[in-house]
Nucleic acid binder design. Structure first.
Lengths: 213, 213
DNA sequence: AAGTTTAGAGACCATACGTTCGGTTGTCAA
DNA sequence: TTGACAACCGAACGTATGGTCTCTAAACTT
């Protein structure tokens, strides 16, 4: 891919900036004015070059139809994941309902779409207290989960221990009629318990810790 | 805020879908066709209602100038953070250079803009091995950093220990001419070392663990 | 029953916008 | 000098597009 001329770089930067500001692409004439180009044809000329080199994609005959590509792929948007509650030892986690779903987005965390993927029923929990430290999750961290009642061996899940009345974050392994709950932290010891005592409430997709507010 | 009519909801959904597909908003006539509306004036009529209710924002006299708002705010795009290398005990972390900066985005992670904030010189490191487990960071995790040579007490930093020839992730506290490096995991013990032995290489902004690929 | 509001239909207009075309300028190699 | 070529200029063109105007028709108020 050849280097861009100063003018082409400026045009590209302007398009990026404009989309950032307006959420829709600029017209050719707006590019012309902003980049101090004397004619629309020059803009068109350079846009064609940018398109040939794969920096943008244009739809012909359509106004403002410029997409900025980065690395050949379109820039994606963040997806909001609802934080439906918190997880702590001794407290049940709230069950995601249709109500909390689309409606109350007041508390949510935005994540990159690649984390969520194609999964549906994704939600987040805020971790309260340090009781999940053996899962390498600290107070204040946020875990992203996919709603699930079953899990494959080795999956990290939110398990509700009925007898102990306690939610915990562990890797799950079925061993006969018993279940091994293995902390993510290898230096910690696993818990063995009865299969009937464990209720899977969700599979962990990712966890996020923000060190600085 | 009043409820939306079926037609209005359909229009809104279509706009969202269209932007997802094309990265630029649809024209009024495209909305008309897709939502099986008989006239442009009806689309206009409903768009005005949507705008009055705060679901979208329109710029007058400009084609395709529809922004979809969610929660009153514009949907933001992810920002790519370059993964410039990995961090492991006994290996120096690579110094971010202008080269690795804008140029080689081949390896990067996309994060929500709220994580990066206004900070510049943000980069990411992949964690190798379990040596950072006392910072609640496991093998394969990714830490997001801001380039910094100084740090305030209590900041989580990447510290390079000169004598030990080792990079580590700890909270830093200056205590006279000594430095206390405190693990994030409260059950672990701090390290005390000479101030001259410590070189701050970056402040940790966040860390991300992807449980499922 | 008569008026008012809400939702829609269809046509028309002005213009914002992408496209194209003929011409100019500067550079470089033959 | 000439020709080729890339970059640019200015204007004109056609149409895609948003806005508006008039007219219906149903759903309400009163």
């Amino acid at each position: 891919m050849k280097d861009l001329s100063v003018k082409q770089q400026r045009i590209l930067d302007y398009i990026r900036e404009f989309i950032d500001d307006h959420d829709y692409p600029p017209s050719i004439r707006q590019i012309q004015q902003a980049c101090e180009i004397s004619s629309t044809s020059v803009v068109d000329y350079n846009l064609r070059i940018l398109e040939r080199q794969g920096h943008i994609k244009r739809d012909r005959e359509v106004s403002r139809a410029i997409e900025v590509l980065q690395g050949g792929r379109r820039a994606q948007r963040v997806v909001p994941v609802p934080i439906i509650g918190s997880i702590a030892a001794g407290e049940p986690i709230p069950v995601p309902s249709a109500d909390t779903w689309s409606a109350d987005m007041s508390d949510s965390i935005e994540v990159a779409p690649e984390i969520v993927g194609d999964r549906e029923n994704v939600f987040a929990l805020r971790v309260k207290g340090t009781s999940m430290i053996d899962a390498l999750v600290n107070d204040g961290d946020i875990v992203i989960l996919e709603q699930a009642t079953a899990a494959r061996d080795g999956d990290m899940v939110v398990a509700w221990l009925k007898n102990e009345q306690e939610a915990t974050l562990k890797k799950i392994f079925r061993e006969g009629d018993r279940v091994r709950l293995q902390p993510a932290n290898e230096t910690m010891q696993p818990i063995y318990t009865d299969a009937g005592n464990v209720e899977v409430q969700g599979r962990v997709i990712a966890s996020i810790r923000r060190q600085i507010a």
